[in-house]
Simulated assay, not measured.
Amino acid sequence: MIRKADPYRDTDVIDARAPRTNQAIVGTLSLLALITGWWPILGVLAGQLAIGLVFGRRYCLPCLLYFEVIQPRVGEGRIEDSRPPRFANIVGAVFLGAATIAYLVGLNAIGLVLGLLVAGLALLAAITGLCVGCEIYRFAARLRGVRARRIDSVDLIELGASTAAGEIVVEFTHPLCTDCRSLEAELRAAGRTVVTVDVSRRPELARKYGVVLVPMAVAVTSSGAVVERLA
């Protein structure tokens, strides 16, 4: 199978199905631990999440299951930013660790609540794709100053674009973003002149123009005035 993103090298992005596989495993095992009373499973899950976060995907068992067993059979899914699911894993590890400690010191009710919270949110994400931890990360990013906002003009010279080409489309993209490539192909097929800005190489431009998610595309005149938001 040919991969667009190497799961062990291109760690700034991830196949969107991989986090959902991890969430399904964590959610199911957490629920099993609470139903059966085998609460030490929560500690094992917390440790496994922590090991994967610190040492990488090669040491994350659910990651290995997906990338080595499932993905070669079903193909590569949509590629997305790996930071939101990574943050969700951090939150999960903290809550599972806290639940384990609560059980150890006899605070079973607190351990149960924390464990149920992890199980419920993990299974919700696995089934519906709604990752609460990921959404918290995106909200926090906006609080740090990365805010989506209206763009009235862009500096074409700063972007390395010609100012004599008439109306062009400026697309903020990432080299491993599946949706970015699809949008660029659609625009070029429609006869549009497209200038791409790789946010992994020009993060200062992403912050300047308030690019929270890619792809983001605007049609601009030769003077840089924005006439239409396309994505």
Rank of each mutant, 00 (worst) to 15 (best):
V74T: 11
V69C: 09
R181S: 09
F172T: 01
Y8K: 08
I101R: 07
T221W: 02
L61D: 06
K4P: 00
A24C: 08
E228D: 15
G115A: 05
A125D: 15
C131Y: 05
L156Y: 03
A33C: 04
D12L: 15
Y59K: 12
G37P: 07
E135N: 13
I127A: 15
I127D: 04
A164H: 08
S182T: 15
G133E: 02
I2P: 03
A125W: 00
V26N: 08
R181E: 09
I14Y: 03
P19A: 01
R201C: 02
R20H: 08
L205A: 03
I90P: 02
P203W: 04
K4V: 07
P85Y: 05
F55D: 05
A18E: 10
Y59D: 06
K4M: 07
L176R: 05
A93Q: 05
E135S: 14
L96E: 00
D15L: 06
E228R: 15
G52N: 12
A141Y: 07
W39Q: 11
V105K: 06
L187G: 13
R188Q: 10
S82F: 01
E204G: 05
A141C: 13
A148C: 06
A88V: 10
A125P: 05
L176P: 01
R207K: 14
S200D: 14
G97D: 04
I101K: 13
V54H: 10
S153D: 09
R20A: 11
V197H: 02
G92F: 09
R58I: 10
F139Y: 14
I41D: 09
A148H: 11
S200Q: 12
L65F: 14
C180L: 07
V26H: 08
L112M: 14
F55G: 05
A217P: 00
A148I: 00
P85A: 02
S162F: 08
I51V: 15
G145M: 09
V227H: 10
Y8D: 07
T100P: 12
R73Y: 04
L187S: 11
R192H: 14
V197D: 00
L183S: 01
A99D: 03
A93G: 13
V214A: 05
V13R: 03
F67W: 04
V211S: 04
V74S: 13
R83Q: 06
P40Y: 12
V227T: 04
V226R: 11
R201D: 09
R142L: 01
I110Y: 10
I151D: 00
P19C: 03
R86V: 13
V195N: 01
V44D: 06
